[in-house]
Amino acid sequence: MRRTLLAASLSALLCSSFAAQAADRVLSIGGSVTEIIYALGAGDRLIARDTTSTYPEAANDLPNVGYIRALSPEGVLSVDPDLIISEAGAGPMETLEVLTRAEIPFVEVPDGFDGAGILAKVAAVGTALELEEEAAVLAEDLSTGLDAVAAKTASLPESERKRVLFILSTRGGRIMASGTHTAADGIIRMAGGINALSDFEGYKLMTDEAVSRAAPEVILMMDRGGDHGAPDAEFLALPAIVTTPAAKTKSVVRMNGLYLLGFGPRTADAAMDLARALYEGL
């Protein structure tokens, strides 16, 4: 309730601010939002970004105000934005309250892990930047790409769809994996796969027995460092993984995290790339 009331207050502030003039000092929070702003041709209006905003390459030249869920008021205020556009879930709440008191317009774009969710993000960012026509053109292009992916995967027989396990972390040998209602679940379904874990929502630490019962045929991971950087042979030998069909066929797919899970302008390409990794000859 507290976050809902704050969001309503921020929205009211935004409307009154835009009545005066369009923002030209924009802070983008969230990788997909930043990608959309650049795709709309408004990258020159960005004055800073958060840690998750690493694409396109030009974004990395902008000042970094910190991680989306751990923003400090000082970091945000130091770049003097006249508009903040953010993915859902920015925080902490205390920082958002400071921004409200500072009367900085704040737009939180809707979240969603399917094609409709991407198009809603584009529309929200386009409205915030007063670029509705550009957003409509981008949405049409994205719809074409998403439809192409759907047409490709629709031809897959149900009996041939791969069971895919997305692993977020293997720290300490413990598997943190994705259930439903996550970006990982969304991209697996978009690529024609079946989420091997469908009996819970969000991310969860799994027992070795639970991973074995899930019987994934493919392991999907982000291609980042740390525990994700272990060679496939070492990873597939983990007790939780070694008994799975994926381990027997050495089926591991690694993709850039923002590309795979961002649900922004590149998602149709990411879904197609994943589909081709899952299904030879698609």
Rank of each mutant, 00 (worst) to 15 (best):
R2K: 15
L6R: 07
A7L: 15
L10A: 00
L10Q: 06
A19C: 12
Q21R: 13
A23F: 02
V26N: 04
V26M: 05
S28Y: 08
S28D: 11
G30Y: 10
G31A: 04
S32L: 00
I37M: 03
Y38H: 12
L40V: 08
R45C: 09
L46K: 04
R49N: 09
R49S: 10
D50Y: 05
T51S: 15
T51Q: 12
T52L: 00
E57L: 13
A58E: 06
D61H: 14
N64Y: 06
N64Q: 10
N64W: 07
N64K: 13
V65S: 06
G66M: 00
Y67T: 12
I68G: 12
S72F: 04
V79F: 09
V79M: 13
D82P: 03
S86D: 03
E87I: 09
A88H: 13
G89T: 00
A90K: 11
G91P: 08
G91N: 02
E94P: 11
E94R: 14
L96P: 01
L96W: 08
E97I: 03
L99T: 06
E103K: 15
I104M: 01
P110W: 09
D111K: 15
G112V: 06
F113Q: 05
F113Y: 13
L119H: 03
A120H: 07
E130N: 12
E133I: 10
E134G: 15
E134N: 14
V137K: 10
A139G: 04
E140T: 11
D141P: 10
S143I: 09
T144Y: 12
L146S: 07
A148C: 08
A150T: 15
A150G: 11
A154W: 08
A154H: 12
S159C: 14
L165G: 02
A177I: 08
A177Q: 09
A177R: 14
S178K: 03
T180M: 11
H181V: 06
T182M: 05
A184C: 08
A191Y: 01
G192S: 08
I194F: 06
I194L: 03
A196R: 15
S198G: 07
F200Q: 11
F200T: 02
Y203V: 01
K204W: 10
L205R: 14
M206H: 11
E209H: 01
A210R: 05
A210S: 06
A215S: 09
V218S: 02
V218F: 09
M222K: 13
M222I: 14
R224W: 14
D227P: 00
H228K: 03
G229N: 13
A233V: 12
E234D: 14
E234W: 11
L236I: 01
L238G: 13
L238K: 14
P239K: 14
A240H: 08
I241W: 05
T243P: 13
A246S: 09
K248D: 06
T249R: 12
K250V: 08
V253W: 04
M255H: 03
N256D: 15
G257C: 03
G257Q: 04
L258M: 02
Y259H: 14
L260D: 02
L261S: 04
L261D: 02
G262K: 10
R266I: 10
R266L: 14
A271V: 00
A271R: 01
L274C: 11
A275L: 07
